[in-house]
Amino acid sequence: MFKKLIKWARTKSPWVLHFNSGACNACDIEILAALMPHYDLERFGVQLKATPRHADVLLCSGPVTKQIAPRLKRIYEQMPEPKAVVAVGACACSGGAFRGCYNVLEGVDQIIPVAAYIPGCPIKPEALIDGVAKLLGKA
């Protein structure tokens, strides 16, 4: 009963933190589009939070450059449990257009555990909503 209540609350109120780990900004614009009036992620209780301490889901775009890798790890460690990471866009999933470059790590999962991959270059806001909904269905 108590566990059910907690699970209900967790699936109904995922607060997201948006982190750009060296993306070209296209995915970031699409993430913002998903939060804007047309798609309105707040329908599902999603709110964009400014600090990792408040967030449940880390929306990470970009292929993770070598310079930003320790910072990404630190942001992830600052989030309170339970937490989930969503790799947003082809770059975050596998390196995408930057795959093989000398200065990138080819994907978010090289640094931190990823719960959901959303491919696309850039992703569509619908794809982001679908991915987050599937992630919450799994939780």
């Binding site: 907690i6 209900w8 609350a9 109904k12 009036p37 309105d40 707040e42 329908r43 599902f44 209780g45």
Partner: peptide
């Protein structure tokens, strides 16, 4: 021009409670 919380209780009325419980 948005809808606000929709699926937590009737028209999302339980949304603040879900936030606090979470």
């Amino acid at each position: 021009n948005r809808r606000g919380p929709m699926y937590t209780g009737w028209a999302g009325i339980l949304q603040p409670i879900a936030d606090i419980v979470k």
